[in-house]
Amino acid sequence: MNVLTNHAFFDQLIQNQSAIIKGLYLTAYISLTAIIIGTIIGIFVGLFLTYGYRINKFIFRIYVDFIRGTPVLVLVLSAFYVLSVAGVNLTAIQAGILALTVFASSHVAEMTRGALNNISKGQTEAANALGLTFSKTFIYILMPQALRQILPTWINASVETLKASTLVSVIGVGELILTTQQVVSRNFMSLEFYLFAGFLFFILGYSIERIGKYTEQKVSIK
């Protein structure tokens, strides 16, 4: 099988284009959902980790450390199998999104905690001296600074979530990897199509990185 049979590759690509596009779409959909929901949850957990009562801090600390110490594959498989036995019937896609959301949230929680802790006490004191309440201090003074600090790390975590979405192929979700495997099982052009899938992921990840760098520039404090 000659690698340079480009003609055949492009033919196959066009023939299977709808399947691949579907796979790509599902990858994007799953990743985006997990990133968005995971970020929202993660920020709240990060808040508890920074400002919570001792008992809350402890519980969320355990949660974050446990999730971060578990491989994503185990999270995906657990979400799929454990929940069905426990009576919660999720489709494979839902289980996958759940696992990825939990994964993303643990990273966002940790970076939020780090960023908030990094802001000097003087900022809060100055805000307090001006009469700002906790919530106003948080919204107008602390979060704007924390979010700017988090941005590069958050972009990283988002790309990691995108890459982790490939693992839901193991529970049968038809995202890009599974789709590629199905295409390859028919035309045996494994080299070309795995490279192509890699290429697509590279484009996705690299774009996210570029957008992130651009955003960093735009919001940076001069």
């Binding site: 890459k163 990897i177 080299l191 795995y194 490279l195 899938a197 590279f202 990840g205």
Partner: peptide, 19 residues
């Protein structure tokens, strides 16, 4: 750094044999 490790694993195990 932008490619999922799963692809690298599958590529080496399933695709490389073809060359």
């Amino acid at each position: 750094r932008n490619i999922p490790i799963l692809i690298i694993i599958l590529f080496i195990y399933f695709a490389l044999p073809s060359v």
